[in-house]
Design a protein around this nucleic acid. Sequence first.
RNA 1: GCCACCAUGGCUUAGCGGUAUAGCACCUCAUUGGUAAUGAGGAGGUCGCGAGUUCAAUUCUCGCUGGUGGCUCCA
Length: 675
Amino acid sequence: MINVTLPDGTINEYAEGITCAEVITDALGRKHGCLAAFVDGVEKDMSTKLSSSCSVEGILSVSEEGIHILRHSAAHLLAQAVTELYPGALPTIGPAIERGFYYDFKMDPITEADLKAIQKKMQFLAKQNAVVERIELNEEDLKSHFEHNPYKLEIINDKLEDGAGSTIYKQGEWYDLCLGPHVPNLSRLMFVKLTSVSSAYWRGDQEREQLVRIYGLVEPTKDALQATLKNIEEAKKRDHRKLGKDLQLFHIDEEVGQGLILWTPRGSIIRQELQDFISFHLRRQGYSQVFTPHVGKLDLYRTSGHFPYYQESQYPPLVEKDLMRKLADEGCSCSELANLMKSGDIDGYMLKPMNCPHHVKIYSSQARSYRDLPLRLAEFGTVYRWEQSGEISGMTRVRGFTQDDAHLFVTEEQIAEEVLGCIELVQIIFDKLGMTDYRVRVGLRDPDSDKYVGQSEGWDKAEDACRSAAQSLGVEWTEEEGEAAFYGPKIDFVVRDVIGREWQLGTVQVDYNLPERFDLLYKGNDGEMHRPVMIHRAPFGSMERFVGVLIEHFAGKFPTWLTPTQCHIITISEKHKQYAQEVADLLKEKEIRVLVDDGDDTIGKKIRTHRKMQPAYMVILGEGEAENRTVSLRARNGDQVSDLPLDQFVDDLMTEISNKEPQPCLVPSQQQSED
RNA sequence: GCCACCAUGGCUUAGCGGUAUAGCACCUCAUUGGUAAUGAGGAGGUCGCGAGUUCAAUUCUCGCUGGUGGCUCCA
């Protein structure tokens, strides 16, 4: 007999060999809803036989572990369906992921249209409700089970020690190499939805074959699945690429170039407001504003190390016409030209991929003493990077972007305090914008990689400085090896958007390397020359990416201070044109952004039209308002307030804007939102 | 860069081997209307670009450009 401890503390005695399923059924009844169990805290199948005293706790499909098992099992079901429909298809790997599951197959490409049939097959198989069976096999048997699948054999050879066996999971005649656990039977997997098909490299290696990857969702109930699908639909409506077009915030034109953002008047207002906001804080923190050109000589980037290191992701260099002609006359080939550039035998210009070298040159334009430090140089600097064409997307991944950049030249003793100042700035901004869902990542070098430059002593010090700064932040932070820049460690602020994607926005980087490469010096109070340390930082990261994320964060409903047109004035009839103009002039005088619609559409029609542009307020003006010098307001959610005295409205609105209130607040919320 | 899919007036979209729908937006006229579409009329497209097949191509084929979903990459 063995003793089994249940979550509520009771201890039951059972015969040895009893299964988890039997224990849980005994404790909770037949409709326990568990799909696996923790045995002494370790995830096990329901069919696991208990051989000694232990604790047992059921895993429900709504728990984090439960949904993970559900997804993983659904991936197996997908593989079964695909291999039955496409006999030549070879399953490779198929894990559960954050929002569902996928499975990679070696097979001929399929299209989204094919997913319907596969999903139907999955649901058919789920209805058959085969039992999922765990089978332990020795190495030889294991290999013979997968002798026609080189991918599985590769995993067996790589992951298992010589001579070690492993397990397969079998449902009906189909089986897969897997450690489990899995659902006890397939009927648990009724509520699946295949979402997309794409491709992936085998084991994530660009050099190896491309596989067909099928993504899917699974939920424990029909309602849960419908809710998940609805969430995805809602998220799509927030997509900054769609909203950017609808709200006329930016435009990308193929004749201008891929990944190059044209900021339209309305989007430019948002960007300008953000820049003003940040500039205000920069002045407070003692930064100096600078401007530098968009190009620089190749030699500059040879010295900085950017040219040789990041050649693949730079726009092609610009070479002078006469030199090009001369080289062409001499029969110089393209590859020879590239070599000459690489070796430094010919020079040219480059679109700047970053602002640091220019700022470094401002530092070194004068002899510096310790009294000049910290020297903080800030610039909204536009940089150009040749991102891979397939990677470019909307505003979040582009080829030309403006960093809210700054470089701080500091003494070693000043690092900790200055890094902290940078971090505080990031926090002020995130706080003001209500971006609370972010994590802090301290990026360290990968000890096994040789991509990093500089002395390891400097690295150690810089890494320590980042750690202690992150520590003092009072926010959850993680260290990640291999996430450092090639010149130094960094602290990144990674923001999670509404769809759960993560975006690296703010960044602070400590750099011992560039001062070395450019031989930067200052005279200390000891009369000796010393080397300063550089801190790179950009609280927004790039204006493009930040605004892109912000559009989705607010779903286009910006706080009043950021809203491109804050008030849309709508007249009831032609008779109120004059009063509308008066109100508009008054608001404009106070630098409030306003638009007047005194056209002859009906009031309902106008409201419908203007709602699409998401003004902070619609200001409705008719008979009563004109007579009493009042306004009526309509908020984005349809709430209204009537007969607000005009002067009070203007005052309140100005206060709201200068306070940078997170949402419009002049119309008290009366009901649940109609949006 | 790789794989798959996609590309029709400003936007959303129908369609097909014989140069093309519809709605919104736009313009004109009438309407003077109180919080999610007043009515009538009008104008606007060499169907992303280039080549090929064909008597004929927006429709089929290839290339290019751009987009979408992923992979790889991201100073």
